[in-house]
């Protein structure tokens, strides 16, 4: 495996507070994820998996350590630069979809193109691209519907189309099936597999072992550290107690 990794972190730390009350949400995380991988991050709430996700998603910066995303060191970038990285390299899929509620599916999907600093496409081009992305997730007939006129599964498909529109290096999914019924959840997972098969690199945070089972590799996080990292499904992770929340 000589290819350049998509994600390469070295000893990531995220420390909240200072001095005696300082809490390390991440306490030295080093992971490597290669192109084309489909990886789950599991862990009980408070384990630091959300913090890790935020840093991997360039929504937050590590206190210490290095994060190299697609060959670019992003650990010390400022807010403006991180925004550009999110736009160009990353596609997000959230548990609660995070679509603009009063905006049509088409415009929601076009949104990342609007903030693309490198490509100034015409409105027609953007609409074409968004239409293609919506068609790819099976929503060609819903382009002019607003999110509040759609089912949860459809909303998540719109979110996936939006995540794909800028052809990102990495797709980050945060509990993508968390708000969906079992059937829609499986449909979304099928779609994720389809993306994976097309060569997309996907990192997914979940607390559901049966969802994690879908992925070829599972990283377990506990107390801000990588507890285990394996390719045998979720079995190697200590099971979170049922009482624990979703994050």
């Amino acid at each position: 495996m000589n290819q350049q990794p998509i994600i390469q972190t070295a000893d990531l730390r995220k420390i909240y507070g200072m001095g005696d009350i300082a809490v390390a949400a991440l306490d030295g995380v080093s992971v490597r994820i290669d192109p084309g991988e489909f990886v789950s991050i599991m862990g009980p709430s408070g384990s630091g998996k959300s913090t890790l996700m935020n840093i991997l998603g360039c929504l937050d910066r590590p206190t210490e350590g290095k994060y190299i995303l697609a060959g670019e060191d992003v650990s010390d970038l400022n807010k403006e630069q991180l925004a550009a990285i999110r736009n160009r390299q990353l596609g997000f899929i959230f548990q609660s979809y995070n679509l603009l509620s009063r905006t049509t599916a088409l415009k929601n999907v076009m949104l990342p193109l609007l903030y693309d600093q490198n490509n100034h496409r015409s409105n027609e081009e953007r609409e074409e691209m968004a239409l293609a992305a919506l068609t790819a997730v099976g929503l060609a007939d819903r382009v002019n519907h607003q999110p509040n006129e759609m089912s949860g599964g459809q909303k998540q498909r719109v979110a996936i189309a939006r995540a794909l529109i800028n052809n990102p290096s990495l797709i980050l999914a945060d509990e993508p099936t968390g708000n969906l019924d079992t059937k829609s959840g499986y449909e979304i997972m099928d779609l994720m597999h389809e993306l994976h098969d097309r060569g997309h690199t996907i990192v997914m945070v979940t607390h559901e072992p049966d969802i994690a089972e879908h992925t070829e590799r599972v990283i377990c996080v506990r107390d801000g550290k990588v507890e285990s990292d394996g390719r045998d499904g979720a079995n190697h992770c200590a099971q979170p107690s049922p009482a624990e929340g979703r994050r």
Binding site: E80, R86, N98, L111
Partner: peptide
């Protein structure tokens, strides 16, 4: 605020 967060997540800079 949520809308602002969504825009930021898809790449809106503070300036935008």
């Amino acid at each position: 605020t949520r809308e602002i967060g969504i825009r930021q997540s898809v790449g809106a800079t503070p300036n935008d």
